[in-house]
Design a protein around this nucleic acid. Structure first.
Lengths: 227, 227
DNA sequence: AGCAATATTCAACACCTGTTGAATTGGACC
DNA sequence: GGTCCAATTCAACAGGTGTTGAATATTGCT
């Protein structure tokens, strides 16, 4: 008999493990563990395959994470960019609310991408820097433009710095998506359900009053997300 | 000759490695690497001793981290609580600025504690939960009380929810301390110096206008931190 | 001088990590 | 029916992790 013992379950599976399925598993694990703590073995377990298979489809753990980002970012970026078009003449407060809703829609199921935006990049992998260049910077630019247009239209007071206002808007939205539901039950007896929407509304009200030319003008009615 | 080879450098050192020195090293490493990624070997290297020595002074890695928190938190909590005393009749905007300054003073050199407050607790170690109970919850309560007093004094509009306003204030301050200096050079050509103070001022202006009973009233002059 | 307590290091354990090279199988094509 | 290629697994490597038990100097006490 041959010295390497004949293991029968190698070779292709009846149903292929396509890269997208791997990405799904990776997204789930990155979401729970964070970029650094997520292990390829855990991802493989989730996907129902061997860790080595990941290396057949992706060059490294970092490349896997990058592919994950490249799957999500373009659609998010496109939606934000569409919102920033100068032909959109709706009230600025409504457009900002739409920014929050778009974030909510695209990111609510993907804490991994949120962690990336939040700044895991900063000391994280180097290979992600052109992702900032190509995707995050234009996104920030678009939101910034909404504020600038708001100033030009006499809705936002001229003293407001668009870049900082964008920073405030985006950062707080991430905190609301991530931290508010987790932290609210710790501090009060309130259940976490509805916390995100409550937080978003309260946040936009504060931000808008802080930024509007006429702070006492009422907010337009804000539509709820449809999902 | 004795079978265990006689290594000459065991036993106590000429200068003791006291636990506080260990905590200093731990703080530095936790700051750079984060709670999970910081290794005891790196901490020991920083402290100039053997990893095993850490276990002579602390029961575990988690206990070390906990001791680190217990070294910083009480002073921070005391300062915040003093600020919330109802006998403090200064303008609410100034008291909120003081909250930002206190955060800045106590936390600017300690990203580890910031990471904890930010939410590394949520999925992190279980043993930290009573730290939330004993230290973080009263801190949040104090800031909340400042908002409530502001409402009672007719400075803050009654529609504002003190808990959410506190969440906004604290979370954004952490983002400003951590993320703003790292992210600003990525998005603009601006150097990171002064970014924190600029961000703090702009942030308080937005928050205060968003929260004040009379949003058009000017902010009181905000003193700079002294350090 | 001897003894006990204290502070420190060494060497190892068991486990987890990203990654790789070789082996293997199934299906498609000729 | 044989051949080739794509997809998958196995077993291992080298390194890192928290942790522990034993060995060992030093200090202070009597």
């Amino acid at each position: 008999m041959p010295s390497p013992l004949p293991s029968r379950n190698r070779g292709p599976k009846p149903t292929k493990v396509d890269p997208d399925h791997l990405l799904d598993a990776a997204q789930a694990v990155f979401a729970e563990e964070g970029l650094r703590a997520a292990s390829l073995r855990a991802i493989a377990r989730r996907a129902g395959c061997d860790p080595a298979l990941i290396y057949y489809h992706f060059a490294s753990k970092e490349a896997l994470f990058l592919a994950l980002m490249n799957r999500r970012f373009p659609a998010l970026l496109r939606d934000i960019e569409k919102l920033a078009e100068p032909t959109d003449l709706r009230p600025t407060a409504l457009r900002l609310w739409d920014v929050l809703l778009i974030y909510h829609r695209h990111l609510k199921d993907d804490p991994g991408i949120r962690a990336l935006i939040r700044g895991e990049i900063v000391r994280g992998a180097e290979g992600l820097s052109h992702l900032i260049e190509d995707q995050i910077r234009p996104m920030v630019g678009s939101i910034q433009r909404i504020f600038e247009q708001g100033i030009a239209r006499g809705e936002v007071r001229p003293g407001v710095q668009p870049l900082l206002a964008t920073f405030f808007l985006a950062k707080m939205q991430l905190e609301i998506l991530d931290v508010l539901p987790a932290v609210l039950p710790l501090l009060t007896e309130l259940p976490p359900e509805g916390a995100v929407l409550t937080g978003m509304r309260a946040w936009l009200e504060v931000l808008w009053r802080g930024v509007a030319l006429d702070a006492s003008a009422p907010l337009p009615t804000l539509p709820s997300p449809l999902d």
